[in-house]
Amino acid sequence: MARRAKGAGAETAGGLLLIAPPAIYALLLLAAPLLLLLTYSFLTDGYLEILREFTWANYSEAWTNPLYRGVMLRSLGVSALVTAATVLLAFPVAYFVSFHVDPARKSTWLFLITIPFWTSYLIRVFLWKVILGYNGVMNAGLMKLGIITEPLTFLLYNVNSVIITLAHAYAPFAILPIFVALEKIDRSLLEASQDLGESKIVSFLRVTLPLAMPGVVAAVLIVFIPTIGDYVTPQLVGGPEGRMVANLIQLQYLRLDNYPLGSALAISAMGIVAVISLIFLLLTRRYIRGPK
C-alpha cells in the first residue's frame, strides 16, 4: 500500500525520535549499570581486584551471616513501621485538604506540605538529631514542663529515631497520592450514600475509604521502597543499633572494597523489596482495580 505513508508510521516515528535521548540515557546509565551490578554480585572478590569467576558465595554470605541477616531484617522492620506510621498519619491530612479546604486554596496547602521535602535532607536529618538528642530540644522541653526529671535516652541513636526521622522525610510521598485519590471521588457518591440512609462515618467507611485505596496502596509502595535503601538517616541518627542495609552497602563499597558482596547485598535488598511489593499489590488488587 503505497499511500500508507503519513499515517500511524509517522506518529510512531515521531514518538520514538523524541523518546530516544531520555531512553538511551536511562538504558546506558540505569539499566546497564543495574545489570552490571547483578553480574558483579556473582563474581568473586579477590584482593584488590575482582575475579571473573562465577560464585554464589556472596549471596550465601549475605543471607546466612547473622550480621547481614540481622541488618536486613531490621531494615525491613523499620521500613514497614515507617510506612505504616507515615501513611496512617498522612491520611487525615490528605483527607482534610481534599474534603475541607476551599478548592482555590488546595494548592497552597499542598505547597506548604511539600516545602520541607524540597529543603536539604541532610540538614533536616541533622536537626532531628538536635531535637531528639540527650541535650536536645525534646528533652529540654519535657524537663522544663516537669514531665521528666532527667533526659530520656531512648530517643536518639536507635530504631526509634530512625523511624521518626524517616516518617518525617517521606510525609509528602504519602500525602500526595492519597490526596489525588480522594480528589477523584465524586462528591455526589457520598451524598448518595447518606441519601440511602448511611451516617457520615459509615459513608466514609463504605464509600470514601474503598475509593481512596488506590492512593493508599500507591502511598505505601512509594514510601516503603525507597526508605529501605535510605543511607543518611540511619547513619546520622541511627547509632550502631539503627544501621540499615544502605549503610552496609556503603561499607562494602567504600570502606572494605568488596564490590561483589556489596552488589549481592544491594540486589538482595532490591529483590526482597520487589517481592514484598508484588505480594502487597496482589493482596490489595481488588481495591486498585476499582472504578477508573
Binding site: I19, P22, A23, A26, L27, L29, L30, A31, A32, P33, L34, L36, L37, Y40, L221, I222, I225, P226, I228, G229, D230, Y231, A246, I249, Q250, Y253, Y259, G262, S263, A266, A269, M270
Partner: peptide, 23 residues
Amino acid sequence: VMGLIMLPLVLPEIIVAVSLLVV
C-alpha cells in the same frame, strides 16, 4: 520505556549510586 526512565523516583539513591559507580 517510561517505566525505566521514571524508575529512579522509587529506586533508593544508594542503588543508583553504587550501580553507576561499578560501571
